[in-house]
Design a protein around this nucleic acid. Sequence first.
DNA 1: TATGAATGAGGCTTCATTCAT
DNA 2: TATGAATGAAGCCTCATTCAT
Lengths: 202, 202, 202, 202
Amino acid sequence: MSKVDMKKKSKESSLLNTAFEFFTTKGFSKTSITDIASKAGVGKGTFYLYFKDKYDIRRKLIAGKSAQVMTIAAYALSQQTEPMGFEDKFIFLIDNIINQLDENKSLLNFISKNLSWGLFMQALSTPSEQETVFRDEYLKLLEESEHPIRDPELMLFMVVELVSATCYSSILYREPCTLDKLKPDLYTAIRNIIAQFTVVDG
Amino acid sequence: MSKVDMKKKSKESSLLNTAFEFFTTKGFSKTSITDIASKAGVGKGTFYLYFKDKYDIRRKLIAGKSAQVMTIAAYALSQQTEPMGFEDKFIFLIDNIINQLDENKSLLNFISKNLSWGLFMQALSTPSEQETVFRDEYLKLLEESEHPIRDPELMLFMVVELVSATCYSSILYREPCTLDKLKPDLYTAIRNIIAQFTVVDG
Amino acid sequence: MSKVDMKKKSKESSLLNTAFEFFTTKGFSKTSITDIASKAGVGKGTFYLYFKDKYDIRRKLIAGKSAQVMTIAAYALSQQTEPMGFEDKFIFLIDNIINQLDENKSLLNFISKNLSWGLFMQALSTPSEQETVFRDEYLKLLEESEHPIRDPELMLFMVVELVSATCYSSILYREPCTLDKLKPDLYTAIRNIIAQFTVVDG
Amino acid sequence: MSKVDMKKKSKESSLLNTAFEFFTTKGFSKTSITDIASKAGVGKGTFYLYFKDKYDIRRKLIAGKSAQVMTIAAYALSQQTEPMGFEDKFIFLIDNIINQLDENKSLLNFISKNLSWGLFMQALSTPSEQETVFRDEYLKLLEESEHPIRDPELMLFMVVELVSATCYSSILYREPCTLDKLKPDLYTAIRNIIAQFTVVDG
DNA sequence: TATGAATGAGGCTTCATTCAT
DNA sequence: TATGAATGAAGCCTCATTCAT
């Protein structure tokens, strides 16, 4: 990569990072291009060399950040050596993601405010530049499961929504309780949901 | 209520209704005071006689609409004659609310876009002008329950978040499945959550 | 007219006058809304209460100024008491307009820069708020003429174009000669054009 | 001309042609340097190697295009073998130019939008790189004329203005009539103007 | 109480021009 | 010579809010 290309990448990163910071603190509509450009240390016009408009930079942030979280979680799971069943692996992934978000509250804030089920699924199945993808990992988990899961997408949907909604409030505002206090009950609830979708042979 | 007071109320209502319509269709930040006032048929200045600013009218809308939903559900429950246990009553309330939202998509849209746990709890416990309040109803349910519930607020939190997040996508976008298909699994999951919070005497 | 309406009219006039001044000196595309508003002593937003955009104010200026010139010329003719033939009346009108423009160079500049045949004819036949209209006057002249004119619109077109193009340069830049020096030859040329369009009975 | 010089010329030509195309279609102020450079297939910075700024390229276009038209007309006249008087030669030139413009509407558009008398006269007397020049041809015509012309510059001025203004509207918009219908009356008018400037010995 | 004219800060975006490569 | 990334001034326009009537 040439020197000039590196500079360009660095500018783009700088803009993305700054936008991310403002979006998560001030909110999208209260953040102006001027805010982003000047904090990023570039001219206002420069912004438009890299992004079509404000919506464009948000879209790219969502895609990038989602992929990043998924990839980290999937990678962590792949590093596990001891044998685990489907349920444990699934909980492992969930737990890893929750911990990432717990340590990175602005990311959580951003994702929660901008991620709908549609965008999430899209991010899950869009490989972009990442090699491994969450969805593949999830499907692999299913195949390895001893007991078949009926309606795996609906199950994933319910779990994801439950997790994201409860953890959001819990991590950011410690309401109605801290994450530590929430986790046991949350994981129990997840295991119950899994059980409820597990087809048991007669 | 005097004639003048009625006129005042009517203007306020008109503004609230119009604002609601725009917020749910165009979104909050893309709705202007001019939009609201002119559609409501009053002068722009009049808006400021009833509301401090744009945020004020949103706040009042959230409170009012939440209370309305809760009140309707609680009233419906009170009309039930046959005896029901805690779990059934709880599910009854949830089901009633879901049905209200299913029939009133713009309300769902508005609540989902504007309701955080904090605002929701606030709305639940702010009597405003409504007589009955959801929270009272919920607490009454708990007292009547045969088996004690550990951590009732956490339980309510988890259920509310699960319901609102899943139903939002399901009702509005039919993704990942229709509401009819979702309901059985959702209610099973809720019953499991209730069970997991129920203290069983030994 | 109420006090408030008078104020409004005065603001609109102020904006029109200022815009006219800038358009004729700096040119249309180099004149900004900020220029106009601040010189007119009103806020930038106020401009948009009176005009849709920059093109709107130009359109209104063209219509207004054209009508004004035509009306003055027609009125002056109507005040003439001594009997005149068609040719003389026509030349009278032309001469009056030329003199108006000679005394009002910025008006000439503006009209010349913004008036096409289409706009001119449109302005001529749009009564707007003026009572008398140039076109009516012209048609009346024709009717009174002893000798019929073949193709009166084409004749008017040729004369108008000849007059406007030559006088523009002559008045503004005194090139290639002064207006005084131009007039005799110009009027001779016009009389010749009229003659060439006059149907002579045989 | 060296290879490098040819390359240079080709870039300059390409820029001029592209600018001409945009100026006549989009207009001067709505055409950006980016438009010109990118359509011409060169870098934006390259533009500034050949032209001082946007006004510079317009100026050079006007000069070049005017000279081109004049040269073609003068050349056509020089090819005529049969003997013609001054009036006929003059009309011949005019007719040739009108026909050029009729076949090349974008050129007419450009000239009309950008040519004032001043620029025109300047173009006529600036030899630039062209060998033959309209003005020379015109003066030669005068000398050959049997009857002296009083005030030849004023006469040329009036004719040129009459022709350009009427033909512009006629060719581009067919208003108020087509070119074919206009020509006879126009040429009659021109002959009359010539007559009016011709000094007849007594 | 009711109005809507007036405001000006601030948003988004374009673009002529420069300059390091 | 050739490039195009970078810039920031400047343009247009919106809109929440105020205030005189």
